[in-house]
Computed example of a mutant assay.
Amino acid sequence: METKSQPELSLLSWGANSYGQLGQGHVEDQLAPRLSDTAALQSRAVRTVSGGGGHSVFVTENGEVFVCGQNNRGQLGLGHNTDISTLQLCPSLNQTVTNVTCGWDFTLLLTDCGQVLACGSNAFGQLGVGPTVRHSADLLFVECLKDPVVSVAAGLRHSLAVTDSGCVYQWGTGLFSLAKRALSPHPIPSHLCSKVPCLVPGLDQKTPHLVAAGSAHCVCLTEDGDLFLWGSNKHSQLTTTEPFLSSPTLLKRSLLDGEKVIHLWSGWTHIVAQTESGRVFTWGRGGYGQLGRQASINKNPEQQSAGALAEGGNQEVCLPAEVKVLNGATQIACGSEHNLAIVGGCLLSWGWNEHGMCGDGSQTDVFQPQLISGLRPLLIGCGAGHSMALCTAATGS
């Protein structure tokens, strides 16, 4: 009796590689997908992947963690500060990890029992372990989170978590200067200036269950399919004309044609959401093509005049609009200003492409989702300026 052989899996990576974050054993940028060195994985299945400013973290199905790339602040959790250009097992980990999220130069790991582990830079309190630690090459427990955590997100210099009790916590002072400028002379709310997890007000009885973070904004998705946004609105990513929102503010569902949201992702200055019917909407900054579409501008005269108050003289609000080619996407990943998606078993990319992170062999920004041919992706992930995909055998272009 003939048995089916398992498909051969390959880990490919491309884009910025100054610190070896592509895991290819060198530090040269790659403008198209190339094989990573997966010898350390020894055929382990990968369940999730995330990247930061110059590092990458892979979590396997059995809860192990493999890392590569920049390690100047200990963001790889290896107990030292030396960069690594091929995947290496995080050896001191005796917890089973289920998810990972990376900030610019720090890493947050979520364990199967709902604990959060952190390593890397703590210059802004983004590790959530208090002000005395400047950076840590060892994984530290975020002890202030008493209830089990179900979702965690790392921004540029701040962090978010949702507990199974439905509370949202924020830490890290990355939004403090923006808040101070926008809210002066009023005091800054505690959750915007805390170096340990601080309860975010205004979300009680809202059943939060997923968070995402940009460079200076925060997003929370509730079980009811509503989005709440707060933080900097410099690029209209909060769909308001206010320069800064200090507390969670409901996104009008009418902006998404009345549909509930089932998933969300965030780049540094743009947001991507998928609704219950599988449609994908984008909004925020679009100058590098990261929206995957032409910007739709709010022409409401009242909001136009109010928009003159927005930071940076921004008088136009870029509203959510659908990117039809992404309908039915099964996975989406956002880098700082670029994106990947799996649609119909194919890999699409769009956005900022200075380091080749869109994988088309060029360094020209991509303004509409385009096919990266010859790949059958199973899992995707992005760093700030690099891309990663676990694929079955290539089909050929």
Results as ranks from 00 to 15, higher is better:
175 L>P: 01
175 L>E: 12
175 L>G: 01
175 L>H: 04
177 S>C: 08
178 L>R: 13
180 K>I: 01
183 L>Q: 09
184 S>A: 15
187 P>F: 04
187 P>H: 00
187 P>I: 07
189 P>H: 01
190 S>Y: 11
192 L>K: 02
192 L>M: 12
192 L>C: 10
193 C>W: 06
193 C>Q: 15
197 P>I: 10
198 C>W: 07
198 C>A: 14
202 G>V: 07
204 D>S: 14
205 Q>N: 15
209 H>E: 12
209 H>A: 11
210 L>N: 11
211 V>C: 13
214 G>T: 05
218 C>E: 08
219 V>Y: 08
221 L>F: 12
223 E>G: 14
223 E>P: 06
225 G>W: 10
226 D>I: 02
227 L>K: 10
227 L>G: 09
228 F>N: 00
229 L>W: 00
229 L>Y: 03
230 W>V: 01
231 G>Q: 03
231 G>F: 03
232 S>E: 04
232 S>T: 12
232 S>Y: 02
233 N>I: 06
234 K>E: 13
235 H>N: 11
236 S>H: 04
238 L>A: 00
238 L>R: 04
239 T>C: 15
241 T>F: 14
242 E>W: 09
245 L>Y: 09
246 S>C: 13
250 L>I: 02
254 S>Q: 12
255 L>V: 03
257 D>M: 05
258 G>P: 00
260 K>D: 11
261 V>L: 08
263 H>E: 12
264 L>Y: 04
264 L>V: 14
266 S>D: 03
267 G>M: 04
267 G>N: 00
269 T>Q: 10
270 H>G: 01
271 I>V: 15
272 V>M: 06
275 T>E: 07
276 E>Y: 06
276 E>W: 06
286 G>R: 06
286 G>W: 08
286 G>S: 08
286 G>L: 02
287 G>W: 00
288 Y>H: 12
288 Y>T: 03
289 G>T: 07
290 Q>N: 15
290 Q>T: 09
291 L>M: 06
293 R>A: 11
294 Q>H: 15
299 K>W: 13
300 N>F: 05
